[in-house]
Design a protein around this nucleic acid. Structure first.
Lengths: 141, 141
DNA sequence: CTAATCCTTCCCATAATGGGAAGGTCAAGC
DNA sequence: GCTTGACCTTCCCATTATGGGAAGGATTAG
């Protein structure tokens, strides 16, 4: 089938299918006219990618998961390990976000939020932070 | 002071200070030799940016907050609104992440995680999702 | 035969940051 | 004065994952 069909059945845009091929995540057969040609198995792979992406795995992680999936002899321990690491990562990011939410809520609670102009939120934003251990690369949430 | 000093005092890298200037977030005086020149107020602005970035605001949001900060007559309501929207956004993302974590934990719980190769995690990843409200564009072709 | 859809590749843009090169400037030491 | 090293400048490239769109070839429906 053509890329348009594969896209519709997998839920992955044609644009992304070509990109995944470009970075070596998948391969595609070509027909005489240069068109990419996909079969049912290819669609399954694309659905695999779609699903794992939806679950927040990076393409690099997806690549690892795909490799494990293709290697039918690998111990399930390896798969579980990747999943667990991802869970840990998500939980860490959630903790960081929760801390930020707490801070913002506290600030917002002390802001009148009316016509008056004085605002402790901005006051806080502009105040110097005690830069304790500078080496912490802030988490990109 | 030079950009290196401003960077050290604000915790914003020189690279980023130049970038913020490039996108119009800040301005910088220049000395005769072409070097950027910062004063205490500039450092405060940079700290403001640093703080809001640490709290997860995008540069566009930071730009809005900066504008509110510079306009001393604006009602605190506007500031509180931006903060509240950001809180909502964070909470929404946390909910989504929690749902993913729940899914992954369920999958991981059913995976032996030992030498055996059968693994329900990968099985799930490879199974087609029922694309319910996927508003598929008229499959007319 | 023609027009509408496909498909192809190639370039650009996004958000925020870092790396590094090539070259100008300044301050300290001898 | 001259050298050296630490600064500064601009410019280009890379990152992650995705989409937009152009130019042009292929196919298909009418």
């Amino acid at each position: 089938m053509n890329i348009g069909d594969a896209s519709e059945r997998s839920g992955v845009s044609a644009k992304m299918i070509r990109y995944y091929e470009e970075i070596g995540l998948i391969k595609a057969a070509r027909r005489a006219n240069g068109y990419r040609d996909y079969d049912a198995n290819d669609v399954t792979v694309l659905q695999f990618i779609r699903r794992t992406r939806d679950l927040g795995f990076s393409l690099e992680e997806v690549s690892n998961l795909l490799a494990l999936w293709r290697d039918r002899k690998r111990p399930s321990r390896e798969v579980k390990k990747l999943a667990s690491q991802h869970i840990q990562d998500l939980e860490r990011r959630m903790r960081e976000m929760r801390a930020v939410v707490r801070t913002l809520k506290t600030l917002a609670d002390h802001c009148h939020g009316d016509e008056r102009s004085d605002c402790p939120i901005l006051d806080d934003f502009a105040s110097a932070r005690p830069k304790r251990k500078t080496a912490k690369k802030h988490a990109h949430a």
